[in-house]
Design a protein around this nucleic acid. Structure first.
Lengths: 127, 127, 127, 127
DNA sequence: GTGGTCTAGACCACA
DNA sequence: GTGGTCTAGACCACG
């Protein structure tokens, strides 16, 4: 079993999220073919119906296109991808900040802390 | 059931985490008494032994002191608390950045995105 | 029943102490596998949970490492072992001297008495 | 309850040991009267018969003398006291060394460790 | 197999 | 009351 899922949110949306990230990361390029529903079902160890639903979800976001008889493909529409990229980025940031607020950290602490972290990271890799 | 737990990580460490955050947020002040083992067990709907282990864990981190026959108290040692606050902040940031890298975002995107987000937030609250 | 325990201090810490001493004495070498939790439980005639706690305690002292699904092993980090050896030695000496003070013996008496004892011992074994 | 006893060795000999130490420490001087059997029984929270046996034990060691109708007194025979003092010292040392051997420490380690400890102690108190 | 977690319920020492 | 220890027995994840 390569993949495991948490019990909290529905599997189909967790799976959609993973594929999303693969596309964002460039692991899946525009025009690339996704594995067939059956194949993906085996790979992810879930029911084909679940994969079906995942693909439908991604299609609703215009991130993939289904061509009958051929399979499911990453959209070639770059605009949608960059848009999604931007949206997901903001979402992640929002979630991060919310979490930090929740633990009582102030804006400045977060900002300064992040910059410091990135600086140190840069310093490390230049060594 | 006031509290629920995810199945992924051990309950005792999730509980410890929650208490940690309460202390960081200032919801629990230095010197404050935590609920008794039994009471917390009822509140959290877990076994007293599990709460015990949570408290032991927190004691190991020196953020809680236990007085036999009296109860468990948030440490009055401010230094340890600020230290932990700093450490946890860095940890959260590190995890956030790592996740962003994982999705293919570059340093500048993260930094700019965060600053923009905080600015907008500020604008909102000033309205 | 191979092993017996005093009622004074917790079984888990008495057990930890014994294992500690076995390691110090060299009876357990770095890298050696400790008996499994269940096995040790039978040997020591205690509950597996108690052995668990013992092993967790030893792990907290960094003198033991645990590999999931494989077992618990004496650390290969010699530094930690020599450090502990030194610390325990001082502890024992301190306790001994404190006891002697308590009975009204002076530094010189203790020192001279010890040296004399060691000399005689040496003489005995050379016979 | 001022006094507590371990379950390992008989209470009467533990009690005898304590009295012994009080005498050695000079807390009880030669000629001093020990508490009456009844009194000591209450103080130590044991049965008078146990105290009786304790006093008999001490009498056998010639450390105390019982005068009918008057009570039990620490012997005025200094020789016996110094002798016992010496014997007890050796006993303690022997037990200490045995314990150290048991943990794998060598003669030199013990000797050097002890001397170092006493030196540091001296340094501390001179500060 | 291994260690890790959790529950239920008991008993203890301390205050 | 408080926390601390221990047992018995269950189930889990990892290898």
């Amino acid at each position: 079993m390569t993949d495991t899922f948490q019990s909290s949110s529905p599997i189909y949306s967790q799976l959609a999220d993973r594929i999303n990230r693969k596309i964002l990361r460039g692991e899946l390029q525009p025009g690339d073919k996704l594995p067939s529903v059956r194949e993906m079902a085996i790979q992810s160890n879930v029911n084909p119906n679940t994969v079906q639903r995942t693909y439908r979800e991604l299609e609703g976001m215009n991130i993939v296109e289904t061509k009958r008889g051929q399979g499911t493909f990453v959209t070639e529409n770059q605009e949608i991808l960059t848009e999604m990229r931007e949206r997901l980025k903001e979402e992640e940031i929002s979630q991060f900040v919310k979490g930090m607020y929740d633990m009582g950290y102030a804006d400045e602490e977060i900002e300064v802390g992040l910059n410091k972290f990135l600086q140190e990271k840069k310093g490390d890799s230049e060594q």
